[in-house]
């Protein structure tokens, strides 16, 4: 009985079963992206008030924090998939890591870009080599390094393994980014929201930020699922089930 249940779930660990499942999930995640995005943008621009210190310029927070959070979260998820693939020698895990990398890199880039556009008017500079900004830049380099490394290795299984090692080594950077403002003297201010203390943001501002964070999360899942389907087809092109797909037959 229990054996059947396990087998039932593990069937989705094969690219062949995951491909149609992902296809069904994608529209739902786009719908959630739209719902959270519309609600979030509405609050960001029309409900959240102006800030006493930063005026209207603070509204960059509504995309800077979501992209920053996603850049770190996606990296951890990527490292988990890559680690799982390394440990269990599964193909789909490696494909998921491969699918997440470009989106994670984009989030890291947007975090740095929006951060620079926020820093210039508020701090007085586009960039400074403080611990947080530098470690986020390193995160971008890790993503790009992962993508480049996999592109350079022809055999997909070996590319998976090499990428996994790089991803796992780089994981230590994520807590560094998060705790940098606490551990060291930085220009970047400390956390406005944390698990341990109450938020130092007005409620409507906080809600706008959280809704936008959910929007970016749903977006990332939607795009990663789209990309993994393309990767599955690319890497499984030689298999019978791919040749028999409706999209290929017609």
């Amino acid at each position: 009985m229990n054996e059947n249940k396990l087998v039932h779930w593990f069937k989705y660990a094969s690219p062949q079963s995951f491909y149609p499942l992902a296809g069904k999930m994608i529209p739902w995640f786009w719908a959630l992206t739209a719902v959270f995005g519309i609600a979030g943008l509405w609050i960001s621009f029309f409900v959240a008030p102006t800030d006493a210190q930063q005026g209207e310029g603070y509204r960059i927070i509504f995309i800077h924090v979501p992209t920053s959070w996603m850049s770190m979260f996606i990296y951890i998820v990527l490292a988990c998939w890559a680690g799982l693939g390394l440990a269990l020698n599964t193909r789909l895990s490696g494909m998921m890591a491969q699918a997440l990398a470009p989106t994670g890199a984009l989030m890291a880039f947007l975090s740095l870009w929006t951060g620079a556009f926020w820093g210039k008017p508020m701090w007085g500079t586009w960039w400074v080599w403080d611990a947080r900004l530098t470690s986020e830049l390193i995160l971008l380099f890790l993503y790009l390094g992962f993508i480049a490394l996999q592109a350079a290795i022809d055999d997909p299984r070996r590319a998976d393994k090499a990428g996994a090692i790089l991803a796992l080594v780089g994981v230590v950077n994520v807590p560094i980014i998060y705790f940098s403002v606490k551990w060291w003297n930085t220009l970047h201010q400390g956390s406005s929201v944390s698990m341990t203390k109450s938020p130092s943001m007005a409620t409507t501002m906080l809600w706008g930020m959280l809704l936008m964070a959910l929007c970016f999360w749903m977006y990332s899942i939607a795009v990663a699922l789209m990309r993994v389907r393309a990767i599955i087809l690319e890497r499984e092109a030689h298999t019978e089930w791919v040749k028999l797909l409706d999209e290929v037959k017609s």
Binding site: G57, I63, T103, F117, W118, P121
Partner: peptide, 21 residues
């Protein structure tokens, strides 16, 4: 409030990226 370049420079680039990807 005078921050147009910075706010729209941020939101604009994000919008373009999230459509292009």
């Amino acid at each position: 409030g005078g921050y147009a370049l910075y706010v729209w420079g941020s939101f604009g680039v994000c919008a373009v990226a999230l459509v292009m990807e």
